[in-house]
């Protein structure tokens, strides 16, 4: 396996590779050059086909379904974008609410997981202690489970946390206190963004610990040793030296998490029933397949573009870190 540093730079090197110092670079015969250009153009067509298709559709003002293939926009109309921002689906929920829910989940889960993970990652990276191996395996085991694998118990456990109004003014907090009669359900943790967030943290936390530990292992220890010799306590070493050094990687872990959580679909789609809690990816699903007959394709396309943009922008901004992060998380599906 190649070293970490090499992998980290794959994407950057892929895009900026220096091609001028290649030997014999100019003597590619013209017929070969043309042949290779045809090949690369064909591949370009393959890559651009769905992208141009969806962009063309999204700029169309026609609400009827496409009757012929169009890959280059004939008109630039923002009607579809406007309609989608106005009222994405038949559900009584605005685009801003969907955006807020997606953001709350992806940013909240990312931040909380990171804050909890960083001290654990530090302990695994720097301390030698008796249960180290056992505890590290305990962190690793959930990583083996595909995210969907824990959805049943999380669903059932969250579902048992309910606030019920037994009679006016009398509340019962299931499962700690219960009503003698059936009351009015006020709140169900399972059917709330909070519950989905907690369930998502369950998957995000082991990943964050593992990812951060891998990075902390690569930070040289000289600084910490020097500080310790100067009389800094281990806590001071952590908060004043390691934490500031780890900020770039904390950011990368956060954004990698963000990319994943932004697309999270399985848990919200399983947990949430109220339209005002829906996220962007749930709405995207609602726009295709059996429920989608009423949604014009130009609106669906505009929505797909909007959902894809934050991820694409984050990726491009972070490209030099992405590959390493992906291979670190290779265990998780």
């Amino acid at each position: 396996m190649t070293t970490k540093g090499e992998q980290k730079n794959f994407l950057v090197r892929f895009l900026t590779m220096n091609t001028s110092n290649e030997v014999g670079g100019r003597d590619l015969p013209l017929w070969r050059q043309l042949l290779l250009q045809i090949l690369t153009l064909l591949i370009t067509l393959e890559v651009m086909f769905p992208i141009m298709y969806i962009i063309t559709l999204s700029f169309s003002s026609q609400t009827t379904r496409p009757s012929s293939l169009q890959l280059i926009p004939r008109e630039i109309s923002f009607v579809a974008y406007q309609q989608v921002l106005d009222r994405p689906t038949a559900n009584p929920v605005t685009f801003l609410e969907l955006l807020r829910n997606s953001f709350l989940l992806s940013v909240g889960v990312g931040l909380v997981a990171l804050m909890i993970a960083v001290t654990a990652a530090y302990a695994f990276s720097r301390f030698k202690f008796k249960l180290r191996q056992v505890l590290m395996i305990m962190v690793f085991i959930p990583l083996l489970m595909p995210a969907v694998g824990l959805s049943t118990p999380l669903f059932l456990l969250m579902n048992s946390f309910r606030i019920v109004e037994c009679s006016p003014g009398v509340l019962a907090f299931n499962p700690f206190t219960t009503c003698s009669t059936t009351g009015k359900l006020l709140f169900n943790l399972r059917d709330s963004l909070l519950g989905v967030g907690i369930a998502m943290i369950s998957g995000a936390l082991p990943f964050a610990i593992w990812n951060l530990k891998g990075y902390l292992d690569t930070i040289p220890r000289e600084l910490e040793e020097a500080a310790a010799i100067d009389g800094a306590s281990p806590n001071q070493v952590f908060f004043l030296i390691v934490l500031p050094l780890a900020v770039p990687q904390l950011a990368v872990t956060f954004f990698l998490g963000f990319i994943g959580h932004w697309q999270e679909f399985a848990l919200p789609w399983l947990f949430l029933t109220k339209p005002q809690d829906y996220t962007l990816s749930m709405t995207l699903y609602n726009m295709t397949g059996q429920y989608a007959n009423a949604i014009p394709w130009n609106r669906f396309s505009a929505f797909a573009v909007i959902v894809a943009l934050p991820v694409a922008i984050t990726y491009i901004a972070l490209q030099k870190y992405i590959t390493s992060g992906l291979t670190t998380g290779a265990v998780k599906g």
Partner: peptide
Amino acid sequence: VQGLWFKKIYRAIYILPVVVPPLVV
């Protein structure tokens, strides 16, 4: 391939599928 024209443009285009969320794809 050494001396291939427009290498950088092709590289930038070929990377696009990596950055689109699989859900949207």
